[in-house]
Computed example of a mutant assay.
Amino acid sequence: MSVPARGGPPIYVSVDIAAPMDEVWRLTQDTSLHSRWDLRFSTIEPVEDLPGGGRRFRYELRLPGHLLAGTGTTIGEKRRPDGTRTSALRFTTPDRLSPLGDGRGYWRYEPLDGGVRFTTGYDYRPGWGGPAW
């Protein structure tokens, strides 16, 4: 028996932010600030820069009685002539208590009059329950 590569349909969320593109980019890309606005993480720490671009990172979520940890890799960044920016990543954890298993995601920043549309999309295998195949 095999486990599907992904769990269910990808998750997409968008929000319009009334702030300059460079400021939204800075606040979301700085790993030391991430846990201030994303409650899924207590810390995200860069581990090493990768040859050819990208960066490896380690993340943690402190829960009562358990420290959930995993690793990830930023796998690219694009800037388009229209001002749109996108960053992509992959992540994994061996922790079976994690709600997120292996997956990938992206953040897209689209310029708007007076701000930015920030869209995130994730595709991952759920980490909770089920036998380890």
Rank of each mutant, 00 (worst) to 15 (best):
L67G: 06
G115H: 06
E48V: 09
R6L: 12
A18K: 12
T120C: 13
R56T: 05
P99L: 09
P9F: 12
W133S: 14
V15Y: 11
S32R: 11
G65A: 09
G127A: 03
E23I: 04
R26W: 06
T74G: 06
L50G: 07
Y109Q: 03
G65L: 06
L39V: 14
S14W: 05
W128F: 14
G8T: 12
T31Q: 12
L33R: 07
F91M: 04
G83A: 00
R108G: 05
H66G: 05
G83C: 01
F41Y: 08
L89N: 12
S2Q: 14
L39Q: 14
T86S: 03
L112W: 10
A69E: 13
D113E: 15
G101K: 02
R56D: 05
P9S: 15
G72N: 02
P99G: 08
T71I: 10
L33W: 02
G7H: 10
W25C: 00
G105P: 01
G129K: 08
G8N: 11
R62Q: 15
V24T: 00
S87T: 10
R58T: 00
E48G: 09
G101A: 05
G101M: 02
L67P: 07
G54P: 04
S2G: 12
G105M: 00
W107R: 15
G129S: 10
H66K: 07
D30V: 02
P81G: 04
A19W: 01
I17L: 07
A69G: 09
P4S: 11
L97K: 15
L61C: 07
G7L: 11
R90Y: 11
R58K: 07
D38I: 01
V3G: 12
P111G: 08
G53L: 06
L63E: 12
R125W: 09
D95L: 00
R6M: 13
T120H: 13
A5H: 14
R62D: 14
T43P: 02
G70H: 00
R40D: 08
G101V: 01
F57A: 03
K78Y: 13
D22E: 14
A18T: 11
L39T: 15
P81H: 00
R40N: 09
A18P: 10
Q29S: 15
D49K: 15
T31V: 15
H66D: 06
V47N: 08
S35E: 04
